[in-house]
Design a protein around this nucleic acid. Structure first.
Length: 580
DNA sequence: GCCGTTTTCGGCCCGACTGTTTTCAGTCG
């Protein structure tokens, strides 16, 4: 049972080995395929079971040779050619490649000369000064290796976006205050709202790049200067975050923003498209002619004019992941993405009746301040004894408080509405933690898994199917149970759940907190299947409505439109869509 | 190794920075 991640890892390692040998072009072919496979929503082994090698080869980038290797991996769990390469140079590529400055060529040299195969051996050699004397290395490379190893052993090299974003804004605001800065934009994976980021890329327009570079590399919080050039520098901050800054002239702003936003594969595809049209695209602009013999610049000040000149619709940053956006843009068939201000309500809010910090009224007032028109109170149920989950009796009492609050708002002339809801536990066998009679009285019923995470694929899927088939259940909260960077999803057949949601009219949640669950690929499956979703904050405090921004970003990354997200709809329309 | 509304053969993105060099390979994004 080999997973896509494992297949991608093998293909990526093959690319690195080929690179070591100095083979031309093949490495990129393998690398590209590895990235494509990581982004697939369906497991290749399932695809293979259904359609064999033929089905595998329909995936772009996979031809005969790579197709056969994937078949070999699925059927035998091994790949002979990979085994041979690994035997020849038995190094831990995944680990060693994380060391900044080490690529395949240098890793090979370290193995050939010093028999270094992993991080421990690398550290030992560096401390003994064995690396500095190698040809192609020196004192500085050895120092860099020691520092990189310290950084890796201290943990993080990727950050969860919702947590790191405030730090990034602080740096942005510091740099924006420099008088030489005309414009500053945070680009890269932050602008694409990737769920985790490895670094923060900032783009600056200025006529005095040197001053920017000097101020940037000496700003407070910098612990290491990784690069310090005339227009491009990189630093490591105290918390481990790497920040890159690039300075460009105003007329290149759009081209630079496009280049610095990525993804890398998206950029490469744009550049290839440019070549086909007789142009050259770089971070300074779109030019007539070839890279060697450039003609006139025909676009560059804005991203929009570059896409237009390439015959494409403008592609939003969240879509730039090479999952079909360029083809769609060429055909004029991009989705009309849900916008960051489009949500009218929040359908998962906890209060101090259970594990939330604030009262129902406080949460309602904060929601109004956040620009919302309605919220659903969805406290936990009794099985979660730890948080004093509600039983039928307390749920009824809470309902009375909500009725009174709504009356009060009405008297005050406020249109805001608080809905009665629940986050009801799904029990081990798929039954629910509250009686059907109690659930039937609520405006909106959400269910979720908080126990028995380790059931088998078959049992977990069957259990959840049973729960969402209940006619009282409107919505399935955080459907895969993952927490970004902390907890893996439970083993469940998400496609079967989506099919069940379609058949039963169940709403799938996009949880905007650090769960980010559903994730982008699953959202796209829902969009394609016509399953409706809701973007919720899962607020446990009055400052948590901001999490919805990350839920929307996931929705956008999953190609969702307003019509796909029920809480982007007015209250009446939203309620009328729920199960009767 | 993959791919094709200019191609089934001949292409394959582009440039900045570093370190070890004395003109450039390797890495990175």
């Amino acid at each position: 049972m080999i997973s896509n991640a494992e297949i991608a890892a093998v293909l990526w390692e093959i690319s690195q080995y080929l690179e070591m040998e100095g083979v031309a072009f093949k490495p990129r072919a393998y690398e590209k395929v590895a990235e494509v496979i990581e982004g697939l929503s369906e497991e290749l082994r399932d695809l293979y079971k259904k359609g064999g090698l033929k089905a595998i080869e329909t995936i772009p980038g996979i031809g005969v040779s790579i197709g056969e290797k994937i078949e070999e991996l699925i059927t035998t769990g091994k790949c002979k050619e990979y085994e041979q390469l690994k035997k020849k140079t038995p190094v831990d590529l995944a680990q060693l490649s994380k060391v900044g400055g080490l690529g395949p060529k240098k890793i090979k040299k370290l193995y050939d000369k010093l028999k270094i195969t992993n991080l421990t051996e690398l550290g030992a050699a560096a401390k003994k000064g064995k690396i500095a004397v190698l040809e192609g290395f020196g004192e500085k490379s050895e120092e860099k290796i020691v520092k990189a190893l310290e950084f890796l052993s201290s943990g993080g090299n990727r950050f969860v976006l919702p947590y790191i974003l405030p730090d990034i804004w602080t740096i942005r605001d510091y740099l924006k205050k420099l008088k030489e800065v005309e414009e500053l934009t945070v680009a890269g994976s932050v602008r694409r709202y990737k769920e985790t980021i490895g670094d923060a890329d900032m783009l600056v327009v200025s006529k005095q790049p040197k001053k920017i570079m000097d101020a940037f590399t000496t700003m407070p919080g910098v612990v290491q200067v990784l690069a310090h050039g005339e227009t491009k520098s990189a630093v490591k901050m105290k918390n481990g975050l790497q920040v890159d800054v690039r300075v460009l002239p105003k007329e290149s702003y759009g081209a630079a923003l496009n280049y610095f936003t990525g993804s890398k594969d998206h950029n490469v595809a744009l550049r290839q498209l440019a070549i086909k049209k007789g142009y050259t695209l770089n971070e300074y602009g779109l030019w007539k002619g070839t890279a060697e013999k450039k003609g006139k610049m025909i676009a560059g000040a804005t991203e929009a004019e570059i896409y237009k000149a390439l015959g494409l619709l403008y592609i939003e940053p969240e879509l730039r992941e090479m999952t079909g956006e360029i083809e769609a843009a060429a055909k004029g068939k991009l989705p009309d993405l849900i916008g960051y201000g489009d949500l009218k309500g929040d359908l998962q809010v906890q209060t101090n009746w259970t594990d939330g910090a604030k009262s129902i009224e406080e949460m309602a007032v904060a929601a109004m301040a956040a620009g919302l028109e309605y919220i659903a109170i969805t406290d936990h149920t009794k099985r979660l004894a730890m948080v004093h989950g509600l039983d039928e009796k307390r749920l009824a009492e809470q309902g009375k408080e909500i009725d009174e609050l709504n009356r009060k708002f009405q008297v005050q002339g406020l249109k805001f509405k608080v809905l009665k809801g629940t986050e009801c536990d799904i029990l081990e066998d798929g039954k629910l933690d509250l009686s059907d009679e109690a659930l039937a009285k609520l405006d909106i019923v959400g269910v979720s898994v908080h126990s028995y995470f380790n059931l088998s694929h078959k049992d977990q899927t069957a259990r959840i199917k049973r729960a969402i088939q209940n006619l009282n259940v409107d919505m399935f909260f955080h459907p895969t149970g993952r927490v970004v960077g902390r907890r893996e999803p439970y083993d469940v057949d998400i496609e079967e759940l989506i099919a069940t949601a379609k058949a039963t009219g169940t709403i799938m949640e996009i949880n905007g907190s650090d769960r980010l669950d559903l994730k982008d690929q699953h959202i796209r499956l829902c969009v394609e299947a016509g399953v409706k979703m809701a973007v919720n904050s899962d607020a446990h405090n009055d400052g948590h409505y901001g999490f919805m921004e990350f839920g929307i970003s996931q929705a956008r990354r999953g190609w969702a439109e307003k019509k796909d997200i029920i809480n982007a709809w007015p209250l009446e329309k939203m309620l009328s869509f729920l199960k009767k």
